[in-house]
Design a protein around this nucleic acid. Structure first.
Lengths: 346, 346
DNA sequence: TGGTGTCACGCAAACGTTTTCGTGTTGAAA
DNA sequence: TTTCAACACGAAAACGTTTGCGTGACACCA
């Protein structure tokens, strides 16, 4: 098995110096045309490729960006990655992935592993546990060491770095407004506890939409789900809550859920209870994914344009890395949302 | 903004040599306890971390594995990644991702980008276009350069490397047998054209199961879907085909589809046409994902244990990298499948 | 012949490590 | 006083590149 061929080997074989080979390959006119063609032919024959690691060491840049996300088995995040990857590859960068699994420790470990020279900058979405703990030392450290960070979706406002976020409040408002305008009077909200930032913002959007349409919110129409590591038990608990909600509040004619899964869960129960959708009950979910698209009936959603978010984040990071943009100036890009009307709305 | 601190800087600051610092940090007893503690304290204070790139160059290994998959916005692949990542991280490896988007060219480019020193080995699933073109030079080249490859799911048999595959035929057989045993007599198959290897194998499983139960296959019950870059048009076309299938073949009482999406599509049409599921019609899909789990009714599936596949692939690769296993010996690991019975089967 | 230029190439440093092999300074034994 | 070991440290090479600079050879001109 032949190993990778290096400049040194070519040099030895052709009885010239390493520098000559290097220059010849880069077509420097310092080297005679003769030697150049000879070296190039040899290099081609042996399929020479410069060693990236050596280049990285020399250039002090790896042309690699690190992405840390809470989970990858998730339509939103994998779409973001897809967007990042596309933009990065176009601009000659690689993407290296770390998963935090929503754990603070894993987030720290991942960042430390990558920050030591493996990558040029980070794109990340903060783990829930980190948000809960509010311990951001690892972010500060990396930034202090001169490594740029772009946060997306789940960001920490107090940290000075570029950010790409969704306008959660406005998106929710759009959804609820749509429900109201299509005739819903009693709209339930299925959201998360307030410490999850996006949950909070989406709840606000819901409330504002009601207010603007002069509808008085009723707390009995709001379910705040306690998140659980084990999705199964989380959903089971939610099912019970929704079921009792339907039983108690007969007048419900609209549901806005902060994610697909909650919406699908609600829909399943509603169908079981004999609701006709969308005639008796309209449903809209935040976050557009496969689930919504292929549900029966297919679910109307607020799309967050995940891939676009990824692309934007990559653009911002690479612009900063290539100094196309002021190093000290941080931007927050807001990606707008779109209402996708499918079969659960009128 | 302070940059990363290096051995050289510490050495200068403490007025010792670089080698002393290096040894002190590794607690070599060649260095006096005095200097050791001094250096270590200083290093800690300045948060010294050895530069990975320099280490990689020196050690000729990056402790990074490259993963190339056709797409990431896909439950199966993201699950595999998740499995890979878990195992890799446990063993101190990073994971770097490349997406081929099913394109031969992108696959080649990605492999070339990563093969030049950035990673120690590959885990990959071959792009459809590559399988169609049957051009495998990039795989041969990387292997020739001494870089191990583990292929998973979509493998090329003729290439000598480790492989992790699903027993597609057996899995399908299980599914179809289940349908037959629960009383189905006229089972339709929705599969892909034969050049997609997994489609072919799953079709074989279907046929074998019928044969073993003395049922004569009818070609009119088989739909072979032509894949299309644009999933929308692929599915639309499929919908028409399924619709006419139902119209022509009134006796259908079971459906086996080679993936979730085909199954869901069929179910949607069946429900529209008034079939009761599972009473009138049972459905099983190959590939277990969110779609099946949360469909209404939830879909019975054959699970491929994607995460386990990823884990296994990572184990095999790292074992080879760390020479825990004979370099020249290639294995093919078969991950078995499980029938997950949900609400579309009796 | 001496001076000047150009050509074609090699040397060496640099990136940040680790590690082998010295080497100067002790202190003690002979 | 000599010899030797132990000790504590430094120099340098190596990993694979790129690049500024030095230099020998040759040609040309005066």
């Amino acid at each position: 098995m032949k190993r990778k061929v290096t400049l040194k080997q070519i040099a030895k074989e052709l009885d010239v110096s390493v520098s000559t080979v290097s220059k010849a390959l880069r077509n420097s006119k310092e080297i005679s045309l003769d030697t150049r063609t000879k070296v190039q032919a040899f290099a081609k024959l042996y399929n020479y490729r410069p060693n990236n690691i050596a280049l990285s060491l020399k250039n002090k840049r790896t042309k690699t960006i690190g992405v840390i996300i809470p989970e990858i088995v998730h339509h939103f995040f994998s779409n973001v990655i897809s967007g990042i990857e596309k933009e990065a590859n176009n601009r000659g960068y690689n993407v290296i992935i770390g998963l935090s699994n929503e754990s603070f420790d894993k987030e720290v470990i991942n960042i430390e592993m990558l920050a030591n020279g493996s990558i040029d900058g980070f794109i990340l979405s903060v783990a829930k546990e980190t948000l809960l703990l509010q311990d951001y030392h690892h972010f500060y450290e990396t930034i202090n060491q001169g490594m740029p960070i772009v946060m997306f979706d789940r960001v920490v406002n107090e940290i000075a770095c570029d950010k790409v976020v969704v306008d959660d409040k406005l998106g929710s408002k759009k959804a609820v407004a749509k429900l109201i305008e299509s005739g819903c009077k009693h709209i339930a909200l299925i959201t998360t506890k307030d410490y999850v930032n996006v949950g909070k913002l989406r709840t606000q959007g819901y409330l504002e939409a009601l207010e603007e349409h002069k509808i008085v919110p009723k707390s009995s129409l709001i379910i705040k789900v306690e998140e659980n590591k084990d999705k199964e038990v989380e959903i089971e608990k939610l099912e019970r809550e929704i079921s009792t909600l339907f039983d108690k509040e007969k007048s419900i004619d609209g549901i806005f859920a902060v994610n697909e899964l909650y919406a699908i869960t609600a829909m399943k129960i509603a169908i079981n209870k004999g609701y006709k959708i969308p005639e008796d009950l309209s449903i809209i979910a935040f976050t557009d994914g496969v689930l919504s698209k292929h549900a029966i009936p297919s679910l109307s959603t607020i799309s967050q344009h995940a891939s676009e978010m990824g692309k934007k984040a990559a653009t911002m990071l690479i612009d900063k890395l290539e100094e196309l943009v002021d190093e000290e100036k941080y931007q927050t890009e807001v990606i707008n949302t779109t209402l996708i009307e499918r079969d659960t709305t009128r």
